[in-house]
Design a protein around this nucleic acid. Structure first.
Lengths: 233, 233
DNA sequence: CGCATAGTTGAACTCTCTCAACAGCCGTGG
DNA sequence: CCACGGCTGTTGAGAGAGTTCAACTATGCG
């Protein structure tokens, strides 16, 4: 299995979507993933430490085994943009550049697998199905990116938080959400501040839309309402 | 030449970047474009009218010959997000879905060429170089998308406008910029309002960074300053 | 000439940010 | 065992960037 792609990530959810969709080869691609996992190198990353930095050579491709990872970018004055949160099964660090355009850090203690980039390059060159698979994945990523640009450009703070919770719930495929990232991470992901994130979460709690049990546990009480808020209803 | 991709666009600038870059086949892909143009159907689109709407079947792939096109999305309450502006040489309407996820409209009177989607699909299936070419294009698009998410999530209004002008100047490859789109289009592209766009353009004019000759003509007087503002200097 | 559309400018407002204080949790060390 | 410091999260009050509402100008087209 090979992935020579832009600095991008493949969510397990996207992979599942592709399998449900029109691409027969995606199932076969997945079938090879166990063997692939065995070929990769495993690393344990402690909470907060970096897997790679913006500007590093892009020599490896990664997959999250356990824990969670964030990819981010910094402006010169320290403003931060979080590109993505990665959970078990998600690929990251795929790149068509020689150097990293993002930093990747472990949000909590995590285990990752990694493969040398040329292994992926070779596999893609050999198997045209992989190329098509990648195209589909990239298209999915681009579609998600456009949804997020709409969010960042036009949605209010409540709508952003609601959208975020809906997204996270979809990726955990249940109503009980674990949020391993800090409020600051969420803020930088949604273009808000820590305080606003905190305030709006308590507001949603007050409105009986969600339930909060500690900072990391969120339960969706009224999914319809949450989706309604997310879409600006 | 074939392009079965997400709802996305290929800027001529990206194509040029690819040619400068590591892909030898991109030149060959381009070499075939004249022949391709002859095989396509030409249409004249009058200012303001749609080429396709969100939800339409995605049967064709398009290229701008003259004029300019915008792709956009609407929220239920009318808030609009502009995904892209397309200029002569840019492809658009590439899609891996059966239906459109954007609306495409002519910003000014425009001529476009279009090809049935299956023509592109066939060509990509036949030529693995095309697949790789597309991957590179998509990666470029994703990279641009991330830059814009940073812009929408973390940049101030002045920084957004400055970034926009720098981007447009790059795509016209000179300091004299034509802005065929309205202030509302720019606002929906940058996540601002018409009034803010207008105010900040006059502010940049007052600061001698740009020169305005009518609403559509912008000349960059101090490119270094503009780039500095764009990056938050 | 009149109307519609696009752009600019002004003034008031508001959503979110900024600054600040405080609370809760956790690991460390006395 | 508790005290302490550091970090994260919450909450409050004030400030500000950008929006909203509104008036006015300019341009183009019938």
């Amino acid at each position: 299995m090979e992935m020579r792609v832009a600095e991008t990530n493949l969510h397990r959810a996207h992979t599942q979507a592709a399998r449900r969709g029109s691409l027969p080869e995606s199932a076969q691609v997945e079938a090879g993933s166990e063997a692939l996992d065995r070929r990769g190198m495993r690393s344990v990353i402690t909470r907060g430490s970096a897997i790679f930095y913006e500007g590093d050579p892009a020599d490896w491709v990664y997959k999250v085994v356990s824990g969670a990872v964030r990819t981010s970018k910094l402006m010169a004055d320290g403003r931060r943009y979080i590109a993505d949160f990665l959970f078990p099964g998600d690929f990251f660090g795929l790149n068509d550049r020689t150097y990293r355009t993002f930093t990747a850090e472990a949000i909590c203690d995590a285990i990752i697998v990694r493969w040398p980039r040329h292994v992926f390059d070779g596999a893609v060159a050999d198997d045209p199905r992989l190329g098509r698979f990648l195209l589909t994945m990239l298209c999915g990523g681009l579609s998600v990116a456009h949804d997020r640009m709409l969010l960042l450009g036009r949605k209010t703070a409540v709508e952003r938080i609601a959208s975020f919770l809906v997204e996270m719930a979809a990726r955990e495929s249940r109503d009980r959400i674990e949020l391993p990232m800090t409020r600051a991470d969420i803020a930088d992901y949604l273009g808000l501040t820590v305080e606003t994130v905190s305030r709006i979460l308590t507001q949603l709690k007050t409105d009986r839309v969600i339930q909060l049990a500690g900072p990391t546990h969120v339960t969706i009480l009224d999914e319809a309402a949450l989706r309604g808020i997310a879409e600006g209803g």
